[in-house]
Design a protein around this nucleic acid. Structure first.
Ligand SMILES: [Zn+2]
Ligand SMILES: [Zn+2]
Ligand SMILES: [Zn+2]
Ligand SMILES: [Zn+2]
Lengths: 133, 133
DNA sequence: TGAAAAATGTAATGTTATTACATGTCATTT
DNA sequence: AAATGACATGTAATAACATTACATTTTTCA
């Protein structure tokens, strides 16, 4: 396990975005979040993107690159411990976040074998979850 | 190794797009490809996206989800053998494609442990290549 | 309190990707 | 050869995703 850093108290917009993501059973695009938050006064995409940037920085939210969408972290917070992988169901759109140290370790090995300095990994597995099979 | 399927002869637009990607040292967005091909008569994004769809289907081109960009396959063609991972240098934008069966195998294991039916994997490692370190 | 840093509001713009519909090309069948 | 059907192409319009620029407000902290 890596060092656990406390994130600062969330600002108003950050908290609103975080609440929307926590309430969702599947990843949401920035524009979907915007639509939900129009009632709370959101008017422009940048309000969402700025909040998301911070939440991702704090490790409270992850971006799924293959979906252009965002999910709340399934754990307390990933912080410096990057999530290892996401399993994404094509049918129900459910996502489960895996923190598998063996996978992380192996990706690190692959990188060092080529003298590649690893900064960030994206691992997204698409398929069908056990329910949807 | 999986079954080797022959892809059909490339059509004109497919070949043009493939040639642009083969000549590039780094991944290209669909719109960058379009710009290059304006001289050859390309006018609209869809001409590029349609060609890319086919090339990806044939295993001759891969999409890098974290960059919204496309690269020519480094091997003859990946066909049904999905590439295992890409290492992407943040500095020179160079990409190297890894076909690592141990990684593929481990991702499969992770999935089956959760009764997840794996259809497609996205593994993209960001960092610095040995040259740029 | 006063200055600096961070967050927010808003508009405009840039980038990536798809839908819709018309036309063209080529192999197969009659 | 004409008719058919499958696939490829041309073009315009629009949708979806994301950033730049600039003004203002709030928070932090010396
Ligand atoms: Zn997490
Ligand atoms: Zn499912
Ligand atoms: Zn390949
Ligand atoms: Zn490099």
């Amino acid at each position: 396990m890596g060092t656990h850093l406390h994130h600062p108290t969330l600002k108003k917009n950050q908290q609103l975005v975080q609440d929307v993501l926590l309430a969702s059973s599947s990843p949401l695009s920035a524009y979907s979040i915007l639509d939900v938050l129009r009632d709370q006064g959101f008017r422009a995409p940048l309000q969402v993107y700025r909040a998301l940037d911070k939440l991702v920085e704090f490790g409270l939210v992850h971006k799924l690159e293959s979906l252009n969408a965002f999910v709340a972290c399934s754990h307390e917070e990933c912080e410096l411990d990057e999530p290892a992988a996401f399993m994404i169901c094509e049918t129900c759109e459910g996502v489960s976040e895996l923190n598998d140290s063996k996978l992380t370790g192996y990706l690190g090995k692959l990188a060092s074998k080529e003298n590649f300095t690893l900064k960030h990994t994206t691992v997204e597995l698409h398929g069908l979850c056990s329910n949807c099979e």
